[in-house]
Computed example of a mutant assay.
Amino acid sequence: AIDTVKSSAATWTEPAQSTTAAATASVDAAASSATDFMENANAAETAAASEAEASALSIGDYITAGKTRSQIQGYGGYTDIGGTILTIESITDQTITFSIVQYSDSGYAADTVSAKQITAQWVKNTAAFEFCDDTLDGKGYGTLSYENGTIHIETRSNTNHPTKLVLNEDLVGT
């Protein structure tokens, strides 16, 4: 009788262990799946934040789209030289401070025109501004807008003291 009970108990215990192992594996898989889901959700959130940061306007240089800094400045034997380098010096929720240097397609330093430390009201990724150019004492006004990683800048000349810093171009970050 004792042998029968042992035998019966062994048979009954073994399926219980299999069921427990299967249930544990099932719980582990569900936990792993939930962990993967949370990790994927966190990764997507981090990627979205990184993309927003990458597309946000930041302090630094923005240059004529499609050109290198050396090409704009006339170094290295390029044939299509000249362009603009805009340097953003500070940004707040309400203002932006920047400088503009326009390099001539002649390649001569004397033909380079610049306006330094322009401060403008920054509203919804757009700024309207006035400036005096450093090299020729000309005056002008313009707009700067930012969208999808590109700055578009347009400047016009003041009729009383005209500037040679007249732009209508797209600039990209370096």
Rank of each mutant, 00 (worst) to 15 (best):
A1C: 11
T4N: 03
K6E: 13
S7W: 14
S8P: 01
S18W: 10
S18C: 04
A22E: 13
A23P: 04
A25D: 11
A30F: 14
A30N: 12
A30D: 11
S32R: 09
A34E: 05
M38G: 01
M38W: 09
A41N: 12
N42T: 11
N42A: 13
E45I: 15
S50V: 11
A52C: 05
E53F: 06
E53Q: 14
A54R: 10
S55P: 00
A56G: 08
S58F: 00
I59T: 13
I63P: 02
T64S: 14
S70F: 05
S70P: 06
Q73N: 09
G76N: 06
Y78S: 11
T79R: 09
D80F: 15
G82S: 10
G82K: 10
T84C: 09
I85D: 00
S90Q: 13
S90A: 13
D93Q: 11
T95R: 10
I96P: 04
I96K: 04
T97C: 03
F98P: 04
Y103S: 02
Y103D: 03
S104I: 08
D105M: 12
S106P: 03
G107L: 00
G107V: 00
Y108M: 07
A110K: 14
A110D: 11
S114G: 03
A115E: 02
Q117I: 01
T119M: 08
F131G: 06
D137F: 08
K139F: 10
K139N: 09
T143H: 15
T143G: 14
L144C: 07
S145P: 01
Y146W: 09
E147H: 11
G149Y: 01
H152R: 14
I153W: 02
E154A: 10
T155H: 03
S157I: 05
N158F: 07
N158W: 06
N158R: 07
T163H: 01
L165I: 09
V166D: 04
D170K: 15
L171W: 00
L171Q: 00
L171R: 00
V172E: 07
G173L: 13
